[in-house]
Design a binder for these strands. Structure first.
Lengths: 352, 352
DNA sequence: AGTCTTTGCACCATCGATTGTGCAAACAAG
DNA sequence: CTTGTTTGCACAATCGATGGTGCAAAGACT
């Protein structure tokens, strides 16, 4: 077993082996060697040694010195849902293509935890932070600001730095209209038959609700307050709301605008508890896309947010110097029932 | 704006402010101060200063000195799927509860990328690496081994270090049996009507196939080779396989064992292309659980792998000194159609 | 041959925290 | 009052890479 085993080679090891100084080795291996007028032959020798000894730079040492780490952070509410996991997948691809290392962490929609998590990432000297779906983006902003960390909001906007979010108003309108139009003309939906469940008092929910109500008024002529049921994002709270409605009316509303796929899981839980109902007349619109949900036994119209578009835009905006804290809207897409869209995974090849 | 803004406080700053030496400050703030016989009053003073100046240790500096980073890595094939995203979610909770920081990265099932990614993580001096679903776990092992990094395999086993995986044989048996038994006695499934699609030549697929074939032979008396269609994991390859079958036979097999939820997406894509088929007689078993898939218009029996159990076991095993490279089997769970299980998200509270 | 310029590289401080060691002051024992 | 012990902390080396500065040797020029 060669000496190369067991401990990583450092520039000092290579310096001894090559007969050059550590700084020369460093310069050669980090690309600044031309600027330092190192001979090509010296560089070649060192590169060779680095190769055979499998040298890779210690990022902590480099980061300590340069106060940059090569890490780019993504702060998510949760991992376990197709919207956010595709966010992670897309984010990772972008970061890796820039030659940096993604670090994706979730903070459970808890403002306190969001700040704590950001602090932790900061303690690793991350270079940039993408704040996605944060409950308190401006709180996270504070902690970034005090250390001069570049950051940007995604999915839910803040007021201090730029935000890249879905056009939730337009999406809410599209989805609501699609639900209404899905009913045949001879059995049109009444205003009190179209409910919105899920979400809470955040920007996205408010905008979707605004779109929902506007379209209801335009197309159905009325928009009763009681049809808005912001139950939060927990599946079980959504389930309880459906239970309560069902208890009271003996059925679900014919038209359902579900605020997210997580809330939609609450609807599934409700349905699992009512195995003999067939929900024949039901039309569901869900603000999020999940391929399996699209093929459920009742019509499910979905909104797919343009994750790729949002991430791309966010990277563009964050590169600008000190950009204005404006909101960039990215148009989402309406997805008809029984549609299997491709996603970030399709970009990967499958080795067989 | 107080001086605390703009740049982070270091132990040197606090050392000046408190009149103590940097080493004293360090000892107080990292908990080793009792061992160093620092007076309680000195410690209190320093803790106070640290608090008001929002001191947090620079992890890169600490890591450089101690050659530990506080980072624990999880290497995934992909993020964007409920199985792996729940893996990430669960992993993260465990790591955070140990006071460390999770770093989750995906490597697209590509052996080369798996090794490269591990190298990158190593360059950040991660403390442990969990290798999940790797195509070449032993390749990753090599790179970990040379630097003495603790690691463990999950989901797909290697031969060099312990592995914690699903009991895929038993799971394959359960799922196959459940599919067969789902057909009424008067219209029993014939051996050539039960196909397995998806997966490839990895340990998990082989074991599932072994279970599948064993049960077919036991219950149906035969087990034709042609019924095994390992199409890889890409949704589109699975779709093409379904397409081809349909082309040839004018219908799908009545019984379908789909090797993963990603492959199942291939089935959806196929179905989207055949909108007028109703697939009335179809029974699908899927080796993975997705709540939405469970409620599709045909019976879908699923296997939920015990992610929480696997992660917990993996943490136990990795704590043992130099454990044997044995395989730990974790039993998966059979999930009947129309079942909405709770997941890692339910452990989070929802603030309203 | 003497001066000036360029080439090629070595030296050393530095980033922030950790940790082994040394040592004065306070206290105890004789 | 002297010697020995404990308390409480400061000092300084160290982790690995970076980058400013300095300087000898080689080449150019007069």
């Amino acid at each position: 077993m060669t000496k190369s085993s067991k401990k990583k080679a450092t520039i000092y090891d290579l310096s001894v082996l090559s007969g050059s100084s550590p700084s020369t080795v460093s310069a050669v291996l980090n690309g600044t060697w031309q600027k330092r007028r190192i001979k090509e032959s010296t560089a070649a020798l060192i590169r060779d040694l680095a190769e055979t000894h499998q040298y890779t730079a210690n990022r902590q040492a480099r980061g300590l010195r340069s106060s940059r780490s090569g890490l780019i952070g993504l702060l998510l509410p949760v991992h376990d849902n197709r919207y956010f996991s595709s966010m992670a997948q897309t984010f990772e691809a972008h970061v890796r293509s820039k030659g940096q290392c993604p670090i994706v962490v979730s903070a459970s929609r808890d403002p306190e935890e969001e700040r704590k998590t950001a602090e932790t990432l900061i303690s690793y000297s991350i270079d940039e932070l993408f704040i996605c779906g944060a409950t308190d983006p401006d709180g996270v902003h504070e902690v970034c600001e005090t250390v001069g960390l570049k950051h940007i909001n995604i999915d839910l906007p803040g007021t201090k730095v730029p935000s890249v979010i879905s056009d939730n108003y337009e999406g809410g309108r599209m989805l609501t209209e699609a639900i209404i139009r899905h009913f045949p003309a001879d059995q049109p939906l009444r205003p009190d038959e179209l409910y919105l469940f899920g979400g809470r008092d955040d920007h996205a929910s408010r905008e979707r609700i605004r779109g929902f109500r506007a379209v209801k008024r335009e197309l159905l002529g009325d928009d009763p307050d009681g049809c808005i049921q912001p139950t939060g994002y927990a599946p079980n709270n959504a389930r309880l709301a459906f239970e309560a409605f069902y208890e009271k009316h003996g059925k679900l509303p014919r038209g359902l605008f579900v605020n997210s796929s997580i809330n939609f899981e609450g609807l599934l839980r409700f349905m699992a508890g009512h195995p003999h109902e067939n929900f024949a007349d039901l039309v569901v619109g869900c603000y999020d896309y999940d391929p399996f949900a699209s093929f459920l036994p009742f019509p499910v119209i979905m909104i797919r947010q343009d994750v790729e578009g949002m991430i791309t835009k966010a990277f563009e905006v964050i590169e600008e110097g000190r950009p204005q804290p404006r909101i960039h809207l990215i148009s989402p897409e309406l997805v008809q029932p029984r549609t299997a869209l491709t996603g970030p995974l399709d970009a990967l090849r499958d080795i067989d």
